[in-house]
Design a protein around this nucleic acid. Structure first.
Lengths: 335, 335
DNA sequence: TTGAAAGCGCTACCAT
DNA sequence: ATGGTAGCGCTTTCAA
């Protein structure tokens, strides 16, 4: 193993000079820097991580608390995880993955042992225990999602209420007056997943204000249940001209296939909007107009806020990301 | 931050005694141990990770190199990742996730800086550069999958050839003489020639030996292409009584839905076997008899072998896991 | 612009 | 059965 001493010797300088040259925390003459760079390259020197952690103030590791519920949508989950990894690496941080019954206690473990500089929290629920863990340990942290009590916490999420209003706005602008909604499964809602309620409430309110008739159904993960939901929607809203999805891709696919089987064409017979979609609606059999869930942006923002706290800033508060509508032609004007 | 010194003072012993009491590396009297345990609990002491890494020989961190290809099946990927995390935690190790263009260079980075004790390598392809990286750095590592040149490497995988033979055996035992195969997309084959070819070759050979007519098709990720593949199979094998899936769940679902739409019932009209399935075939609309991909076992085995190497063992070689057939009633005897 | 040296908190060796 | 202490390899003061 190559140490800083060997680099110093090879470059003919002291170890502190090598350290400073590498960290850039004080100015180094061009010639000295060149000699050090050469020595580093020749010896293929890589600072010892443990020594850095011990001597320095930081570990350059971020913990990622990523619980995986029974009914979780794995592709979305994986996208969040990799987005966090990418964002962390952009800040020169590595990611320690906390999962499988270790997402809560693991935070305390890695924070108390100074293994990580901070924590990014995924899959946040309204009554999330991790909110309290973070407050008590005082570890720099950022929540992707919004817990019930955000006191003192840094959170970031899509503005689901605004996304709901924007959805209604788009549909109303196209002349729709009767809109069905297929939402996330009831089990998600029960878990006090805040964003679902925020979307649903704002959607309903916006419809009321615009005089739009609406009904929202929350089918389970069972395919038959999902198909039944559309049928129920069409029966309850005979004038329904548009359908909004606020759910995961498999549900969308099942429902669209069911509609197609019944001879309902999208968007000719029924307009469709994929709200807060964590999947790519462009490559679907029928590309869907959408308000995408900006998960990369969310994860990037979370990492950014966590890192800022590691750097000493106190930075509580909820960041709400503005929704953006992308037209892919699945909403058809109605007159 | 609580240090070992404070614990020692509180317990009225020396720091070395505390250290040994915690590591269990030398015998401690019951009374001393009790006093230390009490002090540790009261102060909520947690050893500093950096100090341990520096003083001790190990970091208790395993790197997980998890590349995510364009066409990857994310749910399967996520299952592998969480399975590795679970296995690592069982060994008291944490997992550092290497992804997003850092799966190769990241190995060198974290290994050379002594950030991790070892590496678990996922998504292994035949010409995987990581094989060479591991050989050169000499970092303890285990591959989940089999690279082209396994020289000096520890690898673990399902015995795909045997899984293919077992598949043919099950079908032949049920009287099937004409069997279609839907395999992984061609893009997978081009890259991971490994397990797909091992399965395909052994399957074909077994069919030849048993006098079974067979044809394997490798549709792309496009749904229409997948549906066309079944049609082609039925046209090419007019006597086909069984279908083997060696692919991911979405393909299976698409094909099954297509068959159903054509009035082909499973297993009444067509028997189906899900070979090396990374998904749960029990909760499908029609539960499928299967030879599951034992990914938990694979990941557990990989972590085990990596840890063993960290503990000083030299342990190269390829471990092939025996396939197990699970009957769920989707294979119907033919007479 | 550079160097010397004091730790960081722990492990493990050498004592007793 | 227990204690003293020398490092582990780095960062960062303090000096020059």
């Amino acid at each position: 193993m190559v140490t800083i001493h060997e680099v110093a010797k090879a470059a003919g300088v002291s170890i502190s000079t090598v350290s400073y040259a590498l960290s850039g925390k004080r100015s180094i003459s061009a010639t000295t820097r060149a000699r050090i760079d050469r020595a580093v390259a020749e010896l293929d020197y890589r600072p010892n991580a443990g020594a850095r952690m011990l001597a320095g103030a930081r570990t350059n590791i971020l913990a990622l608390s990523a619980p995986i519920r029974q009914d979780a949508h794995l592709p979305t989950h994986m996208r969040f995880v990799t987005a966090v990894v990418e964002a962390a690496r952009a800040h020169d941080d590595d990611v320690l993955l906390l999962a499988r019954d270790d997402e809560v206690t693991g935070i305390r473990r890695v924070a108390d042992s100074s293994l990580v500089d901070g924590v990014v929290v995924l899959g946040v629920s309204t009554d999330d225990e991790r909110a309290e863990v973070v407050r008590r340990t005082g570890v720099p942290a950022a929540f992707v999602g919004i817990p019930g009590d955000t006191e003192g916490l840094a959170c970031i999420d899509l503005d689901f209420a605004e996304a709901a209003r924007a959805s209604v706005r788009e549909l109303v602008a196209a002349g729709h007056r009767s809109v069905g909604v297929i939402g996330h499964p009831a089990t998600y809602v029960e878990r006090h997943t805040g964003f679902i309620r925020r979307f649903a409430d704002a959607f309903e309110e916006a419809c009321r204000q615009q005089g739009v008739t609406t009904l929202a159904l929350y089918p389970s993960l069972d395919r038959a249940d999902q198909r039944a939901a559309v049928d129920e929607l069409r029966a309850a809203l005979p004038d329904m001209t548009a359908l909004v999805f606020h759910c995961n891709e498999p549900v969308v696919e099942t429902v669209l296939a069911h509609l197609q089987a019944q001879g309902v064409r999208v968007p000719d017979d029924l307009s469709v909007l994929a709200a807060c979609a964590s999947y790519d609606t462009e490559v679907m059999e029928v590309p869907l107009s959408t308000i995408p869930l900006p998960l990369e942006e969310m994860c990037r923002g979370a990492v950014e806020r966590a890192v800022r706290q590691v750097d000493g800033a106190r930075d509580p508060g909820v960041t709400l990301l503005a929704p953006r509508f992308t037209d892919r032609g699945s909403i058809r004007p109605v007159h």
